[in-house]
Design a protein around this nucleic acid. Structure first.
Lengths: 235, 235
DNA sequence: GAGTGGTCTAGACCACTAT
DNA sequence: TAGTGGTCTAGACCACTCT
């Protein structure tokens, strides 16, 4: 592992276990550099990661202040699989694979996935149960050139772990859009809507390291079970 | 201005005006370093900003690929004022200042703003009209120690511009939470709900450079007029 | 004045991609 | 083999904060 990542993880671990609990400040960059036998620029790379992820705040001329409030509450906004999230938030969850087939791209998918008309697309529809209620409907569409097939067992577990570990895909970034729309008949049929007539719709386009678009997802959430947190930094 | 920021803005401007339109790649870091008479690390700081903001994608051993699709469509997730947003999306908008007073912190505000009980708080309630319809209700609470007063004219324009330019505050980061809740009586009285029984609720805590929490905001949106976009990068 | 973080440099070695 | 981006170093100067 790279040195600056090792240092980042080490400092973060010490932050979480309260190593500097009484202090409000991290040691200075010069001190950390000699402690870790690294150059100051390497220390700065590690500290910048801590800043980006909301753990510390640097102040010129003073030092690096530890951000205590809610420090470990909010998930960093990003690409996070349902399994990661459910493990993080520790709720009881279950995944039901409802559909799982190769289809031909219609006009809608052609546009969303930027593939030729009737290009083969792997479609996976999954229902997510939280605390026994069916509250999320995930519709994933994969470009078959990149993801030719997914074992059904994988769909019940973590698709992302399979894509990265088995297929060796390097997932890089996603564009997401969140809106609220009227629930469809399909939502009513597949989910426990509990009287709600709206759902929260999250559309995502997911890209690989080489910028290829390979996945389009629509994730439909019962509104009372939806929560999104973000850490935003001014530029 | 710092050298790496100058380079960032220059490269971004060239990207937008199609300076490298035919090419898919940016010039190499070494080339840029000699072009801009800067060290490679300085070039890398500028390019990393372009990566963070979704304009380019670097590939080891190959170079920096220009991300073309939707390049200038999605607002980078961050702290953005209503005025900035409405200018960006170019819709007709109007702000109505509904309430504007100094109040004493109750238990709720005491907790949200981390101030003593009955600490003075500046409360501003604003209604946002888009295309003639009242669809957003913003309730802002400011710590009076930091924002003692806001001219009413400012509330109708951009509070953030005033805080930064007139009061000299350096706004740094915000924690946001998005949920969907049942609309209140107040929502119904102040907004054109158009039959909707839910609203999208965005809670924000805004901090200064020195990590001080100075503002808590609840922004309540009619669900059909709400849209949130995000650019998420895997870590 | 001493200490802090912010910037910048010139050079080095590495892993990777292309040819 | 040449070129690319990723990492790392040792040192420098600056603006800022604190005492």
């Amino acid at each position: 592992m790279e040195k600056y990542l090792t240092i980042y993880h080490d400092v973060l671990a010490k932050l979480k276990e309260g190593y500097w609990e009484d202090a409000e400040m991290l040691p200075s960059e010069h001190t950390l550099a000699s402690d870790y036998k690294a150059s100051r620029e390497t220390i700065r790379k590690a500290l910048n990661l801590l800043v980006q992820n909301g753990y510390i705040q640097k102040v010129r001329g003073k030092g690096s202040m530890i951000i205590k409030q809610n420090m470990f509450d909010f998930p960093v906004s990003g690409i996070m699989s349902f399994k990661e999230l459910s493990q993080k938030l520790q709720f009881q969850s279950e995944t039901i694979v409802h559909e799982h087939a190769v289809v031909k791209a219609d006009r809608f998918l052609q546009k969303k996935l930027q593939v030729p008309f009737e290009h083969p697309i792997l479609q996976v529809t999954r229902i997510r149960k939280i605390d026994g209620e069916k509250v999320i409907l995930d519709k994933d569409y994969f470009n078959c050139d990149i993801v030719p097939a997914l074992p059904k067992a994988v769909c019940q577990d973590s698709i992302y772990a399979y894509l990265e570990n088995e297929l060796g895909l390097e997932i890089s970034y996603a564009q997401k859009e969140i809106t609220v729309v009227t629930s469809s008949e399909e939502d009513g049929a597949l989910l426990d809507l509990d009287g709600h007539s709206n759902i929260v719709l999250i559309k995502s386009k997911v890209h690989l390291e080489d910028t290829t678009l390979f996945q389009y997802t629509e994730s439909r959430h019962r509104p009372d079970k939806f929560k999104f947190t973000e850490f935003a930094r001014r530029m």
